[in-house]
Design a protein around this nucleic acid. Structure first.
Length: 619
RNA sequence: GCACCCGUAGCUCAAUGGAUAGAGCAUCGGUCUUCGGAACCGAGGGUUGCAGGUUCGAGUCCUGCCGGGUGUACCA
């Protein structure tokens, strides 16, 4: 038996090569080639990366050029010194060909041995983890994402946090980290003051009985306009305008309702308890459809009992003080705006809850890292909260990474924030519906995979493709930039889209059902892979880089690194499959190529799964 | 005013300081008597907003402009 499931059988080629370079560089330093401090070693070792072009080999190291100046030597001479020690590094010769001479100004190019590649691939085929090694030092990582305000309908603005956060959590978990996901619901803020005010002044009992969610949504939208009292908004909404005229002080009254809720007013608390299940039911339905789950859903209300103590403690430590009736933490001197933690009317704020939440999480979960997947517009807020938390000196905060994973805005095709013609945010559910509807039309356009497909199957395929398209479009963008939302582009069957990737999976895996083959049997028989053709070798190497792609996703919390790699993998497969026979091949060649197909299908499927995207057998 | 982010092919987007700035769409051309053609191969298309600077090497780092966005005391 091969080492199925055994960590010893999994090799991350890049990590192995970096380790060899580390040894070589340490030797260079010892031998006086170039003085290298221990703290600059990691940066140099990271300069081992995949080559830009296969003609240069598989991996290259560029650190010789960086080291040349301080060594007082020519870059190529430094490279020669590194190469000499690299070849002697433990384990190097098992996996890699001798490097040869430096290229150009001093590139050290390395090629993986074919035998090592074939053996690693055979192990990956037999492995549930597809050859991906788990991290050596698992961290406890809290991922705080989605976090909608429950009293208002979820809209397109929530999709990015939800989808990116879910993907990051899945990937970190697969990497071997201990991941705790928490949906930090906005269930205690001013939006509830709006609902409360609306409930008391303009509710429609019949409408609430018929559809509580819709009625609460109506109240929120209506009262927000009344409270904001912007003339241009009121001009287009006579109902809101009439209410605003009748209640000129609505804005303040809304805040008063919020404050009463926070103070424990029995009527407002009772209404809150009545509204919450309605709100939760609404968002849970969407999460179910997105296949997104959370380990915890500790909303702001959960931390409410800790807020007064939070303010008191910060004040007692001399970090927070009164200013204009409110209480704030002054982080940048007396002139810069402080981080407010209590309003003049006594109500607490977003920052108060965030600080209390950090303390609670540190105490109960002892994380090494907390990721906040939140709109980039809140970057300043998080900078301040993190700074305040550190100065506060909460127990256990030393060494904990607090990271704001910001992301850009979703734009309409006009380049403006994505809104309906009326100017409202686009509802998330309606968005998903439209995606699925359009997917149904696209999926129905072919005929190959549809033979014998029931209506139910077709609905399932449309749902999987439609939701997948929306998620993939989001995840395949660099998260830091805004992006233009376009159903037409995300549902294309070519290019870097979910539909293309899902199709690739169906096509790859269709080989086995079409050929009437037992995949388990293919895997059992695989004891190596033939790499006679460059296309087979390219595909094999790409497959073994799955772990590297996941590692790179974690480094900068960027899921688009994974989508880009999956797309490259699909490209390698297409090239391979187009020119080399699989089912029509014979003997060992057929076995080898079937194993490649099997692994490609499983890696693509797993990769999409790690992005939260489903796949189908036929489409 | 101050702070942060962004300006890359006609369009939508990539590119952890590395080699000739890449994909898809669109345009044009080619392959194969389809192991799922929703394929594969190729071409054209770029002064990476502008001007300096650092570096062996800059789309990437620094400075200054131009243009766009966001945030800036009691929303979250």
């Amino acid at each position: 038996m091969s080492s199925a499931g055994g960590a010893a059988g999994r090799v991350n080629l890049r990590s192995a090569l970096r380790q060899a370079f580390r040894v070589a560089l340490e030797a260079c330093s010892r031998d006086g080639v170039a003085a290298i401090q221990a703290d600059e070693l990691p940066g140099l070792v990271e300069q081992v990366r995949e080559t830009a072009d296969a003609k240069f080999g598989d991996y290259s190291g560029t650190m010789a050029m960086a080291l040349a100046k301080k060594a007082g030597k020519k870059p190529r001479d430094v490279a020669v010194e590194i190469i000499r020690r690299l070849e002697a590094a433990p384990g190097y010769a098992d996996l890699f060909e001798p490097p040869g001479d430096p290229v150009g100004p001093g590139f050290i190019n390395v090629r993986v041995k074919d035998e090592a590649l074939a053996a690693a691939l055979a192990r990956a085929v037999a492995d549930d983890r597809l050859g991906v090694a788990a991290v050596e030092k698992p961290l406890t990582v809290v991922v705080d994402f989605s976090s909608p305000n429950v009293a208002k309908p979820m809209h397109v603005g929530h999709i990015r946090s939800t989808v990116i956060g879910d993907a990051l959590a899945r990937i970190l978990r697969f990497r071997g980290h201990h991941v705790i996901t928490d949906n930090h619901l906005g269930d205690w803020g001013t939006q509830f003051g709006m609902i409360l005010w609306g409930w008391k002044h303009c509710r429609d009992d019949a409408a609430f009985a018929a559809d509580p969610t819709a009625e609460l949504g109506r109240l929120y939208r209506l009262v927000r306009k009344v409270a904001d009292a912007k003339p241009e908004e009121l001009a287009t909404d006579p109902v809101a305008a009439a209410l605003a005229a009748k209640h000129p002080d609505a804005g303040r009254e809304v805040l008063a309702e919020t404050a009463r809720l926070h103070e424990g007013d029995s009527e407002n608390r009772a209404l809150w308890s009545q509204f919450m299940p309605v709100c939760r039911g609404e968002i849970d339905r969407i999460y179910a459809r997105l296949h997104v789950t959370f380990d915890h859903t500790l909303g702001e209300s959960f931390f409410q009992p800790m807020l007064a103590a939070t303010v008191d403690d910060l004040a007692a430590k001399g970090l927070a003080r009164e200013s204009r009736g409110a209480i704030g933490v002054f982080l940048r001197g007396d002139d810069a705006p402080p981080l407010l933690i209590r309003k003049a009317d006594g109500a607490f704020l977003y920052a108060t809850t965030d600080l209390a939440t950090i303390r609670w999480r540190l105490e109960h979960w002892k994380p090494d890292r907390i990721l906040y997947v939140v709109d980039h517009r809140q970057s300043e807020h998080f900078e301040q909260v993190f700074e305040a938390a550190r100065r506060w000196g909460i127990t256990g905060i030393e060494g904990v990474d607090l990271v704001h994973i910001g992301f850009g805005t979703v734009l309409g095709e006009d380049g403006r924030p994505f809104k309906t013609r009326a100017g409202d945010m686009v509802g998330l559910e309606a968005l998903l519906d439209e995606g699925v509807e359009r997917a149904a039309a696209v999926v129905g356009s072919g005929d190959e995979g549809r033979a014998g497909m029931s209506d139910e199957d077709r609905r399932h395929v449309a749902e999987t493709v439609g939701i997948g398209a929306i998620k993939y479009a989001d995840l395949s963008q660099n998260r830091t930039t805004d992006y233009v939302f376009s159903f037409d582009k995300m549902l294309q069957l070519t290019g870097n889209t979910a539909a293309y990737m899902q199709y690739a999976v169906a096509r790859v895996e269709g080989i086995f059902s079409r050929g009437g083959l037992d995949r388990e049997e293919v895997r059992r028989r695989c004891d190596g892979v033939l790499l006679a053709d460059p296309k087979e070798r390219a595909l094999s190497l790409e497959l073994l880089r799955f772990g590297e792609a996941l590692e790179d996703v974690e480094t900068d919390s960027r899921p688009n690194v994974l989508t880009a790699w999956l797309y490259d993998l699909a490209g390698c497969y297409s090239t391979f499959y187009d020119s080399l026979s699989v089912l029509k091949a014979d003997g060992a060649e057929r076995e080898s190529r079937l194993a490649l197909c099997d692994l490609t299908g499983r890696v693509l499927r797993r990769g999409l799964d790690l992005l939260g995207i489903g796949t189908v057998e036929k489409m």
